[in-house]
């Protein structure tokens, strides 16, 4: 499998504390890769470096062979990396469809146009994207009044606006009800399979991870301690010790396979 994203020996420390230590991995084309680990293991730091919000101390982040280190988030986005946020980040003062139109306007480099009415620009494209995530009926509602699950879907539509090759999703189902979590992840999986997009996501809900991830990586104290299939990771004794625990607070194997 060819890899879309390759991370090589990525490191970052804060005041002597190695938040991310020599982390290397790759995301294959069309792959759904989960990054899990305890709070404070370095997942967020790692994500922020991939997205250009934080400069790594050392290492490379290669998107199709091109180094992204040193680029600001907006430049990384233009290279074809979309993202969703742990706590949804949308534009509450705009309507749902305008939120998506905004991303398309940015993609088409129309940000500094003064003449046209923005609300008429790329509306059809935006509605098509909303249709994809099941939000077309709510296109003209204010984003501020959406239910949380709908906001998450809106974010997904925004992230797809510039036809990315890679999606970075930081806890995509955080704050959602269990049933909605599975649905959203299923929707994401279907869309990325259809469009051939790769996904790297972090998640605390093991039910979501075990049901949808193609592969799972576990980060602990800034280092990858496991990297393999769902079953391998679930049964890894070290992972159980530092992260999963006795397994009493998520669905067991049979349950999750039926989900």
């Amino acid at each position: 499998m060819t890899s879309v994203l390759e991370v090589k020996e990525l490191s970052k420390s804060f005041g002597g504390n190695h938040a991310v230590n020599n982390v290397s991995f790759a995301v294959g084309a069309g792959e759904l890769l989960a990054l899990i680990g305890p709070n404070g293991a370095g997942k967020t730091t790692c994500f922020n470096m991939l997205m250009g919000q934080l400069a790594p101390d050392a290492g490379e982040v290669l998107l199709d062979g091109e180094n992204l280190v040193g680029l600001p988030p907006r430049a990384i986005w233009r290279k074809g990396v979309g993202r969703t946020f742990q706590i949804t980040a949308t534009y509450p003062s705009m309507t749902v469809v305008e939120n998506v139109q905004m991303a398309i306007m940015s993609d088409k480099k129309r940000l500094f146009s003064f003449l046209p009415y923005a609300r008429n620009l790329y509306r059809e494209e935006a509605v098509t994207l909303l249709d994809l995530v099941g939000m077309a009926e709510q296109a003209d509602r204010a984003a501020a009044i959406l239910a949380y699950g709908d906001l998450k879907r809106l974010e997904l539509a925004i992230a797809l606006a510039h036809k990315p090759r890679l999606l970075l999703m930081d806890e995509p189902t955080a704050g959602m009800a269990p049933s909605e979590r599975i649905k959203l992840m299923q929707l994401t999986a279907d869309i990325v399979a259809d469009k051939g997009i790769s996904v790297l996501f972090t998640e605390h809900d093991m039910d979501v991870v075990f049901a949808h991830a193609h592969r799972v990586m576990v980060l602990n104290r800034g280092e990858i301690i496991a990297n393999g299939s769902v079953d391998e990771v679930r049964d890894d004794p070290l992972v159980r010790e530092v992260y999963l625990g006795g397994g009493t607070v998520f669905a067991d194997k049979e349950e999750s396979e039926n989900a």
Partner: peptide, 12 residues
Amino acid sequence: EGIAPIIVEQMA
């Protein structure tokens, strides 16, 4: 919410 499974067990 948003807590590692092992910490959730402690919380319980």
